[in-house]
Design a protein around this nucleic acid. Structure first.
Lengths: 339, 339
DNA sequence: CCCCGGACGTTATACGTAAAACCTCGGCGC
DNA sequence: GCGCCGAGGTTTTACGTATAACGTCCGGGG
């Protein structure tokens, strides 16, 4: 039976609690801040806690942030909220953050290109630090030079603007894909790459070029959505000349688009055409056949990112990390069709 | 050529700007706050703006929030970040918010059930108001009784705890689905419902029961993910007795699960089985055949929610809104198979 | 007997901003 | 010649918190 204050009434402050408990405001702050060992008697502490409960006191975050000069809030800059991969990254980051009394605010880069006017106005929160995906490069620019500690996800380790780097071994992921496909006898490849420029995609392309030297490899780019991917794949697959027998995609979404294009062209997957994705999102097992793809440890990626940021904030060095990835073979890849 | 302060150096305050411009701090606040018409000369104002630029001054949000007693931040409580529908809702809400100098923070209800310990600690931002989906009922509980203005999305309009309601006409959506399927000759239905209890799903079920009275209608529930939906659908479709000819789903994700179950059972969609989704997310056109589904105006939903919250914060009444929905017929529905 | 050092609090202050209240001065009406 | 007013500022205060600096009382060692 909580006694509710009148709804319009102002929220109680630590001074109100102090008055109710018959102590000074400073004592309330000490007790509630758990810094009172040996400074306040158990009896007094208890009465403060009781009064705080009674009044349903919650400290004013704005005042605390002002006083302490930090906010315990991190910003996660992601390319788009609709990208399921980053939902998992967020989950991981938020979990670690919560354990340290931190909160995580999301800043989704607007879908349209071009940098935003003022990210801070949008984020609206004072921040202690920023974690950003290299895929959100445009939105990111605005955060540079603000002096805020910056942890970069999947970006060039040589970038000096970042205080720490957490990467995924996407090059190895692509190598595993090629090994898998070469083992199935494929020799003519199409790489459906992301049209968004980003270090992580450059790395994939380079790894691919390296692993597939001596075979036929074409590259086509498309934005990260099914419709555009389908169009791009349709064009490439319907082109004159020998058709690739395997399409390697930078993302599951692109791979789904390829599947749709194949379907429209009357090509069976995987009998006529093998397709691979990247990320292993829910989408990968939603389609038929299920996608052979590269599984990325998305949640751990987010966790490591947040841990790196916390380390930086604590003044420590955060060594660069590269997380391993896995190939998940499924139904969308099969033996290369006999010529 | 921006002259960067030493990186470790403290951020400049309005007092620093004042010193640089040779005026008092109050004047800086007036000028930068655009409240200086007739109070400060154009010359002085210009010199203040110049000094602020020079120092790369950004107001301290914590101090401002403390002073003003409000944060211009709204919280959007959603069931899960992986649900694409809410990504669009967020986009809409954030767009309106930005136009009014507001920011939007996301609070994704943890995937596991059970209320969270302290949402405020996680949100970490002082808030002016909350917009919440009825699908996140558990996380929502913690926000009740805080006196914070609450706008509910797709929830019982009779709920007195909310200051405003914005709904989607999901009942009409379901009626359109039934009309479509009845017109195709279907008479035996399976309703694959969401296992998450929520007003919006109750409404759908009721509308369905009402529109399909006189036909055969079974109901099965599944959590909102492909794997569980597939299992539930598999069981229901493989059960003895006459098989339903159409499966009506509460969500596109569920519909995709049904498609996979059908594939496994050797049933062709739509020749042997018609399937409908709900939401019209990207997923709906990612699968083959594409899903007949109900298109929800997700972005407008978010916009209206934010507008309602702004109205409430301005002390106005926000009349309840119900947004219309549309049926999008695609390849997953067809004429009922001849018995 | 005096002084000293814990134990237990209190008083005072600073964080950076917004804005109310207050100053100063020159010009103008009467 | 005096008062008043408006333009163009400045001084001051408050927001709520955390914490450094400062009492006060009491028991005990020298």
């Amino acid at each position: 039976m909580q006694s509710h204050e009148p709804l319009g009434g102002a929220r109680p402050t630590s001074r109100d609690v102090a008055r109710a408990a018959g102590v000074s405001q400073a004592t309330v702050s000490l007790v509630l801040g758990e810094k009172w060992r040996g400074r306040v008697s158990e009896r007094t502490a208890e009465s403060v806690r009781h009064a705080a409960d009674e009044l349903d006191y919650r400290p004013n975050l704005a005042a605390r942030n002002l006083r302490l000069g930090r906010t315990r809030t991190a910003l996660l800059v992601v390319p788009a909220l609709t990208n399921e991969f980053f939902a998992h990254v967020y989950t991981g980051a938020a979990a670690v953050a919560a354990r340290h009394g931190f909160g995580v605010v999301l800043y989704p880069s607007p879908d349209g290109v071009g940098p935003t006017r003022d990210p801070f106005a949008s984020a609206q929160a004072a921040l202690d630090g920023v974690i950003a995906s290299s895929m959100a490069a445009d939105a990111l620019k605005a955060f540079r030079g603000t002096g805020l500690p910056l942890v970069m996800l999947d970006s060039d380790p040589a970038d000096p603007g970042a205080a720490a780097h957490v990467n995924l071994d996407v090059a190895d992921g692509m190598r595993r894909v090629t090994r898998h496909l070469l083992g199935l006898g494929h020799r003519r490849f199409l790489h459906l790459a992301s049209a968004v420029p980003s270090w992580t995609f450059d790395v994939r392309a380079a790894a691919l070029a390296d692993a597939l030297r001596g075979t036929e490899l074409r590259t086509v780019r498309a934005p990260l959505n099914v419709a555009d991917a389908r169009e791009a794949a349709h064009l490439a697959l319907a082109a004159p000349g020998p058709r690739p027998t395997a399409v390697i995609c930078d993302d599951d979404i692109l791979a789904v688009g390829v599947g749709k294009a194949a379907h429209r062209l009357g090509l069976r997957v995987p009998e006529d055409l093998s397709v691979t994705g990247f990320d292993d999102m829910a989408l990968a097992t939603a389609v038929e056949p299920e996608l052979t793809t590269v599984r990325l440890p998305a949640e751990e990626f987010g966790r490591r990112g947040m841990e790196a940021l916390l380390a930086v904030l604590a003044g420590e060095q955060a060594p660069p990390v590269t997380l391993p990835v896995d190939l998940v073979p499924r139904g969308s890849t099969g033996p290369a069709p006999a010529v």
